[in-house]
Design a protein around this nucleic acid. Structure first.
Lengths: 333, 333
DNA sequence: CTGTTAGCGCGTTCAG
DNA sequence: CTGAACGCGCTAACAG
């Protein structure tokens, strides 16, 4: 059997209580005995029995990292960056439990007895049910990527409007005026925010908004392809296209190549997300990096503080995104 | 406070032991009382306290999924597929704890008290230290992606040799004879296996092996680019290149485009891995899919059996890979 | 078939 | 500053 505080107690000639206190750095214990006990613990390679500890402290040292789903809708690099970011903070202090919400039949197993705190990388409104369930059970929660207005939840997300505005501004700075946009999925907040950024950039630069240049995509590869085809069929083809995410940008690029046109010579393409593929495309895609990994890190720091110090007042935090200039946009001035 | 078996016991007018047994489907309990107790438990929304349970059963319901690292060397889609595959089997029965080995300062926290079993997606020999540590502590382990010869560990991996042989055979079937290979990182088992497959395919088809066509890469994008440049500088340029992974294939494609050549018209390119990017390239990359997700699923099934039934005799299982035909290889017959 | 009793390893009163 | 005694919620002997 593994060593317990009792074993240490015997060796140190004290009670197990003293050992417990010493190991937990209680101020009640003399430094001398404390050090002695710690020394013995180290030599015996003592590792606390987490279950026993949890039973009495009501903690678990489990942090849950939930995604709306682990399926195709979650981009690999998005997923990877999030887990990486969170784990880089959590390290071995906590267990990081990675799950898709859709793997749970019901939420009975989501309890404070199983999770000290939860980070949710939320991608759809359907997650709200989950979120309210978690709040109800008084489990600390941080929501990434979506804005949740509730005084119990902390949201951390990119300022999509500012980011897309910056992206479109870059196109304008490169001399483009005929700029089309392929929108994301209808009804999504991010779609709306990115659209707003596009509008604002145009308006602030006195460029008329051309309805023909507004295409309704749905964030997937195929919709980018289809909508781009429509844009190419216009009598007045845009000189640049802002795609609301990289997947659609790739679809659009395919459509452009198929039409026998060149990027960026004939038409410039701007993406959004920096999804990990975009740097390898030919030409490499100019896009917006949302620093997902960093959002994961912030989420982790926040939940730890929440869990350990109880600072859990709801708030919404915006993180900056970064324009990544590569080779799919041409300066036409 | 949450409801415990004692609460149920009171309501049912039995002892808490009986409740425990009933809920665990002990054959010692009459069906009648069993049903009654279960009914009450359901109405009270009873969820067992996992810590208390663990304390006495010495189980944790934690399965660890470890990667060599969560850093850049682990491809996002590789990572994503693995987690997805494993979780699709584990579901909510176990907590899946996802970590990079390099997040642990030492392995003191890796104990049977914290993990019922461990799945290791191993990518380097350095993991052996970790593996032996786990074995020593008698934690059930399944190693994915690397061959571990030890009667305590079950390995599950692709038959790289057969797979690369199949890939090269496809090139040959398409009329190619001047086939170059860009090897993976020196010293890696996979590099060697894939090289062997290449050799065998050529030999069996009576094609002379040309030393000039064997380039030493290291699995990364850049090495593919550099080695391809060298191949293009040959007096006798190959008509096809087999790259030992997709990342290098993408690098090679860039080199080819830079040289003003077309794929597949001027030169055919074959990858290996189907890394998630390859389908979006232009042209899309013909490659070999290793079904990582399925390997994850098998790993999960295996570890569960190991943990729950104790079937843990070391063995090595090979999984089939699949040739994915896309547009980067031309038939030149 | 069911209940009584004990104990898992730890933290926490309450006394000293 | 330290220790004795108790209890967290659960399962496992041992009785009946």
């Amino acid at each position: 059997m593994s060593v317990t505080i009792k074993d240490i107690a015997k060796l140190a000639g004290v009670s197990h209580t003293t050992v417990s206190r010493a190991l937990n750095n209680s101020p009640l214990i003399k430094n001398e005995t404390k050090n002695k006990i710690k020394e013995i613990a180290k030599q015996l390679n003592y590792v606390p029995d987490i279950s026993a500890k949890n039973l009495v402290t009501h903690r678990t040292f489990n942090i849950g990292l939930f995604f709306s789903t682990l399926n195709i809708e979650t981009t690999p690099s998005f997923f990877n960056q999030t887990v990486k970011g969170v784990n880089s903070i959590i390290k071995d202090r906590y267990n990081l439990i990675v799950k898709g919400i859709d793997e749970y039949k019901d939420f009975r197993l989501i309890t404070p007895k199983r999770f000290d705190g939860i980070i949710l990388m939320s991608q759809t409104e359907k997650d709200d049910l989950f979120i309210y369930n978690v709040i109800e059970k008084k489990i600390p929660i941080v929501v990434l990527n979506r804005e949740i207005k509730n005084d119990k939840v902390i949201s951390i997300l990119t300022d999509d409007k500012a980011a897309s505005k910056q992206a479109v501004k870059y196109l304008i700075d490169n001399g483009h005026k005929d700029i089309a946009i392929i929108l994301g999925k209808e009804g999504f907040k991010s779609t709306e925010k990115r659209r707003q950024g596009y509008f604002e950039a145009l308006v602030e630069n006195n460029i008329m908004i051309n309805k023909e240049y507004i295409a309704q995509g749905n964030y997937d590869f195929k919709s980018g392809y289809i909508e781009m085809k429509k844009l190419l069929a216009l009598s007045n083809i845009p000189t640049a296209v802002f795609c609301s995410n990289d997947d659609m940008a790739i679809g659009a690029m395919n459509a452009i190549f198929e039409a026998g046109l060149k990027i960026p010579e004939d038409i410039s393409v701007m993406g959004f997300d920096d999804n990990g593929v975009s740097q390898f495309l030919i030409p490499s895609l100019t896009t917006v990096n949302r620093h997902i990994e960093q959002i994961g890190m912030e989420g982790a720091k926040t939940i730890l503080e929440f869990v350990e110090k109880g600072n859990g007042n709801g708030m919404i935090r915006y993180m900056d995104a970064e324009l990544v200039i590569r080779k799919s946009v041409k300066n036409i001035i």
